[in-house]
Nucleic acid binder design. Structure first.
Lengths: 121, 121
DNA sequence: CTCATTGGTATGGTTTTTCGTACCAAGTAC
DNA sequence: GTACTTGGTACGAAAAACCATACCAATGAG
């Protein structure tokens, strides 16, 4: 499951139904993991700048609420995409950054941006 | 906004906050357009096999309901990603296929699958 | 005549997401 | 003592997403 695969190979296999017919599709679980209004945007912000403090993220993602940001960050941390570093200062300081696993989503954003530049007016 | 951009260029620009600071980010609107439980999965199924009839799609995406599939397909059609071809037969036959705009999302799925193959056990 | 077929629609209900507001701790500046 | 700071929590309400069920039209097969 860890072999590299060229884009041409992907095209061939994707039209050969090889990827979904067994339970081992490498696409569907990822899509599900990234669902929700904010997760992809948070990761994208952290691609742009990392680490970021809670308050900075909140400002960038305005109008997100505390609750939403907290929940999304918790889930991203649980899934190993985001690292949380807490400094015991007053007032508190917490910095969020991407793990390698999270940073490896950059090609996805690149593909999305290519599409966006072609099709978004 | 239509220039090609290499991956290296993307990496440079994404860390230079060039993409989001003005209102012209090519990533955020795409993310929003593809939100929802089923849209990406529908497009992915149509990447694998196209055209597909309503009933075939429904079987592949089981346990999706009629209502959900209809709604998602309508929105995808409205956004120009999916083409709907209706044949006036009895019983009715309707075929869905990707437009070029929809097919151009294949690199996104490729990037996702690369990530999935690396990180999904 | 009856039943099965396909690609839906309509309706209402349930569940999941998301939001708004208030609140907290523990220091620092005034 | 008072106000301000940050990174949250807790709670309920609102909104959105999602689901189950029933129904339809028009024909063909039996």
């Amino acid at each position: 499951m860890n072999q590299p695969m060229t884009y041409e190979e992907f095209q061939r296999r994707v039209s050969g139904v090889i990827l979904t017919e067994n339970g081992n599709c490498p696409v569907t679980p990822v899509i599900q993991m990234l669902q929700g209004k904010w997760k992809l945007q948070i990761i994208y912000e952290l691609c742009i700048q990392s680490p970021m403090r809670f308050g900075e993220l909140k400002k960038m993602l305005h109008p997100i609420t505390n609750t939403m940001l907290t929940n999304a960050l918790k889930e991203l941390e649980r899934d190993g995409l985001v690292h949380r570093e807490q400094y015991n200062e007053i007032p508190p300081r917490v910095e969020y950054s991407l793990t390698e696993k999270g940073r490896d989503l950059l090609p996805v954003f690149y593909a999305i941006s290519q599409w966006g530049m072609k099709y978004i007016p």
